[in-house]
Design a protein around this nucleic acid. Sequence first.
DNA 1: ATCTATCAGCCGGTTTTCCGGATAGTAACA
DNA 2: TGTTACTATCCGGAAAACCGGCTGATAGAT
Lengths: 119, 119
Amino acid sequence: MVGRPAIVELTSVALPDAELVARLFRTLGDATRLRVVELLIEQGELHQMEIVRRLDASQARVSEHLTCLIWCGFVSTRTEGRRTFYRVTDKRVRSLISSAHRFLSGNQAAIASCRKVDG
Amino acid sequence: MVGRPAIVELTSVALPDAELVARLFRTLGDATRLRVVELLIEQGELHQMEIVRRLDASQARVSEHLTCLIWCGFVSTRTEGRRTFYRVTDKRVRSLISSAHRFLSGNQAAIASCRKVDG
DNA sequence: ATCTATCAGCCGGTTTTCCGGATAGTAACA
DNA sequence: TGTTACTATCCGGAAAACCGGCTGATAGAT
């Protein structure tokens, strides 16, 4: 018997745990996305055009990065009038980033000069 | 007067802080590298071929990833005979990774389905 | 000395990811 | 309803990163 296909699930393909964690790290592995998150942590809440101005990035870029950050649970939103405000609510995001900063102190030079895998 | 060029410095170009932190995140943003680090955290100390066997990855890949991890300060080494043993000594690495795992719990589905920037 | 186990480096190809620029959608407001 | 903010999406092109396969180097064993 051939039935109709099953309802599409968000996580139809179970990714291995390491791939998930790696993906999480990659989300913060882009300087622009990271700057957005850190800016929101500092400022508390901003709407998109304000982020665009402060980071001097294109609106399209910021919009796409925000979509990604929201999707992954780093940023949450609130709409007011014709503006959408973005903020970081999850405290685990802050602790993750400060963890990174702690590791970075003393390793800046090494990481700055690391050529990654291939030269 | 035209002198000889200055001695090459490791960090001749000062990278902005955000780019450094992003690069740090990207280092753990590859599943294979992450698995190497987590394996070493669990097992304490392993030589390269042992890592190759346990991860079922090619020796060349593991070697290059290890080079990167050593370079960035995640992993340190000890040579004994013709073997080199690798381990994670910096406790900040552990706390960084467990920070990530804490954030991941409750966000797996979201991160698994996130399409990043472009579709 | 020769062979073997272990580790490192290079190269070509493919995939992923980022960006600029243009375009389309949406909600408030006159 | 038309205009004006504001936000979202699409489309090449370019750069970064990963991988497989091969080669080279070194230290111990035979």
